[in-house]
Amino acid sequence: MIQVENVIKKYGQRVAVDRLNFTVNRGEILGFLGPNGAGKSTTMNIITGYLSATEGSVKLDGHDILEEPQAVKRQIGYMPELPPLYVDMTVGDYLSFVCDIKGVAKSRRKPNMDRSMELLKITDVRGRLIKNLSKGYKQRVGIAQALIGTPPVLILDEPTIGLDPQQIIETRNLIRELGKEHTIILSSHILPEVQAVCSRILIINRGKIVASDTPENLSRGLSQDNRLSLRVAGPEKEVLVVARGVPHVVKAESVGSREPGTVEIVVEARRDQDVRREVFSAFARANLPILLMKSMDLTLEEIFLNLITTEEREVS
């Protein structure tokens, strides 16, 4: 649905976005992930037509944003990094102004505004001046604004920033809900967030895509081995002997002790082998109770840091 081809954006000599290429399919929730200053907001500003790319093109359903700006912009609801609010207006007046500039027909106006306000739970503040609202409410008015006119594409730049934990969960649920009818691109530098809602993740660093996949694949593809973390009651030496005796275990080592009389060990097995059952029976036979066992998949955090640090090493 959205094709981004060879997009480059330079600010003077500094390259903010470096040859981005990706497509977003209809109904997808795509997450941009990257540290601050990676080029996420710049990319979003280019897709929405706020900035123009130095090179390359952005197309929505085959229409170029620069050649047919009106047609493309009608299809996109955008919530920038800083919600674009006129703080001297009331929420109701503001949303009605947004209806005006988006060319929402008179008859569709009320249902449109009511739906946006209901989804974001801001109906009760519609008569208040935006400048008197809390940060969380302002953020929600910003998202409500993007929903006006029910555009098929929603682009949300850090939608949950400034919200409290309860609101963050609500907003994530809302985004998942909206994902059923809209194609969504959202950005974040918080991993659990994209992991929770996105069907695909683009990791961006220094204006380049460093990885692009589903959250599960990213997690699986990058974990290099199959590791288990165990807490076993018993003397260290004995525990290690038992662990090393389990078939397919390549390596077992102690990482210290956290509870008196127990030992923490990490067991590494061949990648294609699930050794959890064997480990359990081996320790049971040795009469050494396992108090805790968990597999050590790389978390997205670790993958992210790995990708970014390897890239930085390559650069330097």
Binding site: G49, Y50, Y78, P80
Partner: peptide
């Protein structure tokens, strides 16, 4: 201005 410029 982001709102105005990204609107139709």
């Amino acid at each position: 201005d982001q709102l105005l410029i990204t609107s139709p």
